[in-house]
């Protein structure tokens, strides 16, 4: 009788290998891309440019971290681009012309609106068993229309100097807004890998029925993931205003697709149950580095669009190949 502690082969090595292939696979691609741009894109390696990249990926990182929760439970949120506009115009209006004292309430408002749209998305999806693709597509229109209605299509400006000042602050060389994104990613990583909730998120995405039959309310877990995703959008709206000093009802178009791309490049499965915050973070970096490097190289708009799309496809294909490899490894171990 072979007991559990006596294993054939060398499981530790093969586990390490499959783990490296797992999350670091995308990291290797990122390093390769960075090396390429270091060689061919002028100014790419300067400290200023690295700070720029970090600032530029901040929004997508925050949105993608939230999206990771939604995708892990097998959902999708197409409404983030519109919801960020709604959060921004409402919170922006609340702060407009005000001093720093008006900031906390506006932040809270933004978080609440984001979380509330997430709650609606999640609840409708669960309660009536509708694909979240459709529900959040509806929310995409509702939130955009609401943002336009609320502002009368005008751009909001004159935001508190304390807020816009924060948008340009650096902390030990890091842009403060990126530090916020990093902090959120760290919290998300902790929640997903160290808490009971995180475990149930993965398990539900993997086999909802098994989790339900083990005595857990999977519906609640899924709705909470949508709420987390929505709250992240609320944070992103504040960061947007801190960085750019304005809020307009047309902002954010297409953000949902960038966020989904980051999550998927990071190795998540759109059918749920697989993905990680670290992967998502690397995915967002990859997209940001790509845009930055191509712009520095002076590649034309059209070519840049084509290359970005091609890289997404290549990254996902490599990931699928990598997964087959690691499954083989773990099966033979």
């Amino acid at each position: 009788m072979i007991s559990i502690s006596v294993a054939r082969g060398n499981p530790r090595t093969s586990r390490a290998v499959s783990q490296v292939l797992g999350e670091a696979g995308i990291g290797v691609a990122l390093v390769a891309l960075a090396l390429f741009f270091l060689a061919f894109a002028p100014h790419f390696g300067t400290a200023q440019n690295v700070r720029d990249i970090l600032t530029q990926i901040t929004l997508n990182t925050i949105l993608a971290v939230g999206m990771t929760f939604v995708i892990l439970v097998g959902g999708i949120d197409l409404s983030v681009g519109s919801v960020i506009a709604l959060c921004a115009v409402v919170a922006g209006t609340a702060m407009k012309g005000g001093g720093s004292a008006s900031i906390p309430a506006a932040v809270l408002l933004s978080l609440l609106i984001g979380a509330a749209t997430g709650l609606v998305n999640g609840f409708v999806t669960e309660r009536w068993r509708v694909p979240s693709f459709i529900v959040t597509l509806g929310m995409l229109y509702v939130a955009r229309g609401a943002a336009e209605q609320y502002t009368g299509a005008a751009t909001i400006y004159s935001l508190p100097a304390a807020l816009t000042g924060f948008g340009t602050t650096t902390l030990v060389g890091l842009p403060a807004v990126f530090a916020v994104a990093l902090l959120m990613a760290a919290v998300a990583w902790f929640v997903l890998s160290r808490t009971v909730f995180g475990r149930l998120v993965y398990a539900t995405g993997n086999n909802e029925e098994a989790v339900r039959l083990s005595g857990h309310r999977t519906g609640v877990i899924k709705v909470v993931c949508f709420v987390i995703g929505g709250a992240c959008v609320g944070v992103a709206a504040i960061i947007y205003m801190a960085r750019l000093g304005v809020a307009s009802p047309i902002l954010g178009q297409g953000y949902e697709l960038n966020a989904i791309a980051a999550v998927v490049i990071g190795g998540a499965s759109l059918s749920g149950g697989r993905g990680s915050v670290i992967g998502t973070l690397l995915g967002a970096c990859l997209l940001g580095v790509l845009t930055n490097g191509l712009l520095l190289m002076g590649v034309s708009d059209f070519q840049r669009t084509i290359v970005t799309g091609a890289v997404i496809i290549v990254a996902v294909v490599l990931d699928a190949y990598r997964k087959r490899l690691s499954i083989r490894l773990s099966a033979t171990s």
Partner: peptide, 15 residues
Amino acid sequence: QGLVLDLSIAANISL
């Protein structure tokens, strides 16, 4: 209906 195939033995046991 029983197993969460992509999770570890430990995670399946403690579910």
